[in-house]
Computed example of a mutant assay.
Amino acid sequence: MNDIQGSYNAAATDYHQVLKDYHRQDPFELGALEYFARLIDDGPVGDLGCGTGRITAYLAGQGLDVFGVDLTPGMIEVARQEYPELRFEVGSLYGLDLKDDELAAALAWYSLVHTPREDLPLVFAELYRVLRPGGVLIHGFKVGDGSRPLKQAYGHDLDLEVYMYDVADVAGLLARAGFAEVATLTRAALPGEKDAAQAAHIVRKPGTRLV
């Protein structure tokens, strides 16, 4: 069974300590996020599946009006403790508590790694709904086929399934949701990484914002 909330509620504090500075260590992640940030017009940015808020805080430091949403209350509790100046809420990417066309940009930065491929169209449709015309989305993910169980990490026993996706397949799903491609970035696995290549799709909701 894939117990996302239970697993991350238990591991949230140690998860944050392990990953809080990861964007400073991986040029791929930092480069993708900087590229994404430069595409954003003024307006709210949703870090959707924000975990403990490390990327939310990074983007806020770039001057963006960003807030975080995550499924797991334990992750949100840590995020609020670590970054009290920022806004974090519990919520699901399957049904966000956001208005249509509300966001200037959104991130699903590795926040769908526990989502089966057959559910991706539902989530992409929801992300499309909450982005305003011209809004930008970045989706980071692990490249591969199928899934693997994750039973132990961050010093805790977990009950998770980690899904990998084909780059072209995800691009097709995003296109069918209505998005237009901006960029696709990939990198090979680093020495010691358990998973294969990493990828990020940056896409835009077509249209021009109406004032």
Rank of each mutant, 00 (worst) to 15 (best):
S92M: 05
Y163L: 02
V90I: 11
E181T: 14
V45Y: 05
F179L: 07
Y154K: 02
A106N: 09
L137T: 05
E85N: 11
Q152Y: 14
K20D: 08
D195Y: 12
L210Q: 13
L64G: 01
L48C: 06
G31C: 03
A189I: 07
G49A: 08
V136A: 06
V182Y: 03
V136S: 09
S92H: 03
V130E: 04
G53D: 13
S92Y: 08
P191D: 10
A153Y: 02
Q81L: 14
A183N: 12
D195C: 02
A106Q: 09
G61V: 11
G63N: 06
Q81Y: 07
G192K: 12
E77D: 15
R80L: 02
F179I: 05
F124C: 05
N9E: 15
P121N: 01
L158K: 03
E89G: 00
V69D: 01
G31D: 15
G192D: 14
G95W: 04
A57W: 05
R209Q: 10
I76N: 00
S92C: 10
Y154P: 00
T52F: 02
A106D: 09
A177Q: 00
R117H: 07
R148M: 11
D169M: 12
P84V: 10
Y35K: 14
A37Y: 02
G68Q: 07
S111V: 02
V170E: 08
D157N: 04
V182R: 13
V90L: 00
K99G: 11
D47N: 12
T52V: 03
Y15D: 00
L71M: 10
L96C: 09
T72K: 04
T208P: 00
E85R: 10
Y165P: 01
R204S: 12
A105F: 03
H114C: 07
E29V: 15
